[in-house]
């Protein structure tokens, strides 16, 4: 019995020391990590909606349970008035959630940009959805018309050319954009 107690005590000490070390380093790194995540968010917002003076998270006001894949609604302000809306949507792709930012401009009612934040799609195929050349295919599309994925050179204004061999991912991103678009039309466009 004494032996087992001794062994247990030894493991307790080892684990305690390990905990102390991790706690100490966590104290140093966690503020840096938090700052980084915040900065990343600000940078990605600026990428999809350039020129905003302030971006406020208004998810609590706009995101309702029935909105499904819409997870965040951020409103961009210029001179105190709302000028754009930035959505975070999480549609399901080929092998997981494709988290995407979609931004609309209130004045022109157009998509100013989209950005895939993270995804677990196939490297070399669906993972290309993160590339800017794919995001550019959504730029300046009007918010009032549903977008559609096509496999040949688009002929209509509302058509998005799919990534070769990654139709499911292309459709997922487009579904995300469409959901955000619908939400935008319902909440930010005066009929």
């Amino acid at each position: 019995m004494r032996k087992e107690l001794k062994l247990g005590l030894f493991l307790l000490i080892v684990a305690g020391l390990a905990g102390l070390a991790i706690g100490y380093v966590n104290d140093i790194t966690s503020p840096i990590i938090a700052e980084q995540i915040k900065q990343n968010k600000i940078d990605s917002f600026a990428e999809v909606y350039p020129g905003a003076e302030e971006v406020k998270d208004e998810s609590s006001q706009y995101v309702k349970e029935e909105d499904g894949i819409v997870t965040e609604v951020n409103v961009a302000y210029k001179a105190g008035a709302p000028c754009g809306v930035i959505y975070t949507v999480e549609p399901s792709g080929y092998s997981g959630v494709v988290r995407t930012l979609v931004a609309f401009d209130i004045a022109t009612q157009k998509i100013t940009g989209i950005k895939v934040l993270n995804q677990t799609e196939t490297p070399g195929l669906g993972a290309n959805s993160e590339e800017s050349w794919f995001a550019d295919r959504f730029k300046d599309k009007t918010a009032t018309q549903p977008l559609e994925v096509v496999k040949q050179e688009p002929v209509g204004d509302n058509q998005i050319l799919a990534i070769t061999s990654a139709t499911i991912t292309s459709k997922a991103v487009t579904e995300g954009v469409n959901t955000a678009r619908q939400h935008y039309v319902d909440n930010f466009v005066q009929q």
Partner: peptide, 18 residues
């Protein structure tokens, strides 16, 4: 295992920050 896991966690946090 406890020793190895501790170092991995430390490296993960340091890498995330820096």
């Amino acid at each position: 295992i406890v020793i190895i896991a501790t170092f991995v966690t430390l490296i993960e946090m340091i890498m995330h920050a820096f």
